[in-house]
């Protein structure tokens, strides 16, 4: 039985990969996925990969890239490469926690409200729309300022910004899927409301969620970096790209470019990875978007 299901999984996976490689959108998703896997591995095996501790001086302050410090050291003498490696942990943790919280609230809310509609729908949609129209970073700053630093608090303040994204996508999808004939069929065979929502509607809106999810993580990483850049993030010296970027830019004027350059590259790469992955998935799930005719 176990062997059987394994076989199914692997064969499904290989056919999935084959399909993904079939056209250009597949290549894009795969390239994005590769970048992401590299970063995830980096985060998982940070202690093995990083040559030095990220929170202890390991050389002379402000030394440029060399064989000992391939990305140089910062003003405190910390190894930039090691902070580069460890920084992925913070970025990925906060981004995923924030996204999970946002999805965990936005999706069920969108499902239920979209299904039942009516006055509750109008009220909640109005609240969500007003949050949505508020500039994301500013809202996150305001919440972060109130909650104070810490992983959970930062994640929460980012999550609040993205709840409306999920809510809106899911609600509009549900509103159209609930009028599908198969949902009416489920109703006609006597299915309970919860069964209809979770077995008939959710699977049919899920593909669009996955795309939003990966796009959102990219956004969340940017927001997190932004918060740390502004000093509202994680308390130093915990390695964090946003903080390092902010710290490093002070030294750009004295030509010590490496301190800001490498964390900047890290943020760009990981955001690019998630975006490409999301875009590729999007075309995979909605193949009509790119099609002419």
């Amino acid at each position: 039985m176990v062997e059987n299901s394994n076989q199914m999984l692997s064969s499904r996976l290989s056919s999935f990969i084959r399909e993904m490689l079939g056209d250009s959108s597949g290549i894009m998703a795969l390239a994005g996925l590769t970048i992401l896997i590299i970063f995830i591995l980096m985060a998982l095996f940070a202690p093995i990969i990083a040559p030095y501790s990220p929170v202890q001086p390991s050389g002379n302050p402000l030394s440029p890239p060399s064989w000992h410090h391939i990305m140089g050291t910062d003003n405190m003498g910390y190894d930039v490469f090691s902070r580069f490696i460890y920084g992925s942990r913070m970025a990925l943790t906060i981004a995923s926690v924030a996204t999970l919280i946002a999805a965990g609230i936005g999706i069920p809310l969108g499902l239920v409200v979209g299904y039942f509609g009516g006055a509750v729908d109008r009220v909640i949609t109005m609240i969500m729309d007003s949050v949505y129209t508020f500039p994301g970073l500013i809202l996150a700053i305001a919440i972060a300022a109130v909650l104070g630093p810490g992983i959970i608090n930062i994640s929460l303040s980012i999550a609040v910004v993205y709840i409306p994204t999920y809510y809106r996508v899911i609600r509009s999808q549900v509103a159209s899927v609930k009028n599908e004939l198969y949902v009416e069929s489920a109703y006609s065979i006597g299915a309970k409301t919860s069964t209809i929502i979770f077995k008939y509607i959710l699977p049919n809106v899920l593909p669009s969620i996955i795309v939003v999810l990966s796009m959102n993580i990219a956004d969340a990483i940017m927001t997190e970096a932004g918060l740390s850049f502004l000093g509202l993030g994680i308390t130093p010296p915990t390695p964090d790209w946003g903080y390092d970027l902010a710290n490093g830019q002070q030294f750009l004027i004295s030509n010590d470019w490496w301190m800001a350059f490498f964390p900047g590259v890290a943020i760009i790469l990981i955001v690019l990875g998630f975006s490409m992955f999301a875009e590729g998935l999007n075309e995979y799930f909605n193949p009509n978007i790119g099609e002419k005719r």
């Binding site: 004939l181 198969y182 069929s185 489920a186 006609s188 077995k199 699977p203």
Partner: peptide, 23 residues
Amino acid sequence: LRRERRNFSIIFQDPMASLNPYM
């Protein structure tokens, strides 16, 4: 009413649309 639904059913015009594509 929900329980009673086992005693009567409906066949729709569009067979593809009346089947959940993910089941």
